[in-house]
Design a protein around this nucleic acid. Structure first.
Length: 202
DNA sequence: TGCCAGGCCCTCTTTAGGGCCTT
């Protein structure tokens, strides 16, 4: 598989909002797509080494007893590092997932060299009239079949994948394009809303 | 372990403030 046409769409469940505040990953889910087709997936719970609070148990459905049986973060992240290789990456509100990915890989002295793109920033430009740009709202807004439950890593990565593919399809339809390279999506999320049409028409 | 983030984006902006989005 070439680096350019393969993308990994990932989602972390974590103990909180910030690895800088001692938060850790507790689950990683990811879907690998190539040329718009799902070709692989990854899902693992990981034990952060301490008990998670009741809010996170309730929010994710991941319990302390489930995590007690799970491998440690280092073991899972080594496997996940091999899974993502140097492929480009996508996440919903990517700054959050990138922060945890960098932190967890940093703990095992690993890095990745792919580029990151954000489905939320892309959706803000392509679907400015959506009620809001939460993943669940956008899945409904774009008529994407719901696959699983929200706030579990693999299911959220599946729905983010559906959203990503729907946006690629929408750009093709709206701007009569046949090919949408990852680099164009990266440009899109950095383009002011008023200049989106200008970018995608070229 | 035991704290409460941070990047993006809009506007009543840029010498700033606040909402959105992620767990």
């Amino acid at each position: 598989m070439s680096q350019a046409d393969t993308v990994v769409i990932l989602d972390f469940e974590t103990t909180g909002l910030s690895p800088q505040q001692w938060d850790r990953a507790i689950e990683i889910g990811a879907i690998c797509i190539r040329n718009g087709e799902i070709i692989d997936q990854f899902q693992e719970l990981m034990n952060p080494g301490f008990r998670i609070d009741g809010f996170i148990e309730s929010y994710t459905g991941i319990s302390n007893s489930m995590l007690a049986k799970a491998p440690c973060c280092a073991d899972v992240m080594r496997k996940f590092s091999n899974f993502i290789g140097d492929y480009n990456l996508v996440a919903h509100n990517a700054s959050f997932d990138k922060n945890f990915l960098d932190a967890e890989l940093g703990r095992i002295s690993r890095k990745y060299s792919g580029n990151f793109a954000c489905s939320m920033l892309a959706a803000r430009r392509l679907y400015p009239n959506a009620p809001n740009h939460k993943l669940g709202t956008l899945v409904e807004y774009a008529n994407i079949p719901i696959d699983g439950v929200y706030h579990r890593a693999l299911d959220d990565s599946k729905m983010t994948t559906g959203l990503w593919l729907a946006m690629l399809k929408e750009i093709k339809r709206r701007y009569d394009r046949t090919d949408i390279p990852f680099s164009l999506m990266q440009k899109l999320i950095k383009t002011p809303k008023k200049k989106v049409s200008q970018l995608l028409k070229n």
